[in-house]
Amino acid sequence: MSSLVEIRELTKAYHARAVAINCLNLNIERGKIIGLLGPNGSGKTTLIKMMNGLLTPTHGQILINGYEPGIQTKAVISYLPERTYLSNNMKVYELVDLFCDFYADFSKEKAYNMLSSLNIESSARLKTLSKGTKEKVQLILVMSRSADLYILDEPIAGVDPAARDYILKTILTNYNENASILLSTHLISDIENILDEVIFLRYGQLLMHTSVDDIRENTGKSVDTYFREVFAC
């Protein structure tokens, strides 16, 4: 089977001196959980936004399931942006209904199960919830779809360690061998046990795409420690 995502010579220049992604080549296989890692300004979010069709490449191509970002790819990608776009005035159950209307692969049952195991009232208005709880709601909505590709931009940054464990469990439970999960984070040590592979970005270029156990085997270090060495300031 062909790769889930193929990225060829992808470049995004905001202007001549701000090249966020520079001639990137990358393949993402099915059935993997992949960490997208890199220091601030290395191009992670720019790459993610291009994959979701929110930014247009300056040059090069992204193919997901053989399609360029568009209607077909949005139907199979479940995307958690770094910032919320949900209306603060909506109640949680209204958001569930909204997602159910928008996405054919959305499961209300999954959503309500996760909401109740995190003790989130579905009648609560989003603006009455704490920052961390809002993030949980958003992640629940995203993980309640059965997509081919989940793209999670900083999914665990704002939540407490116990909820982080629950979120990682959620990711593992919903994972299936035809889907892949691409997640960007700075909290590497929290997630490296659940990753297959890591992608290191630097200055918009691919520095490394390898498995977690290969890094540990070859360097005798955790990915977190290795990252700190590679990107030492």
Binding site: G31, K32, I33, D165, L168, K169, L172, T173, Y175, N193, I194, L195, D196, V212, D213
Partner: peptide, 14 residues
Amino acid sequence: LAQEASVNPNTMQK
């Protein structure tokens, strides 16, 4: 077992 250990299923498979 992967869920119990909180590790990637592919790693448990290996």
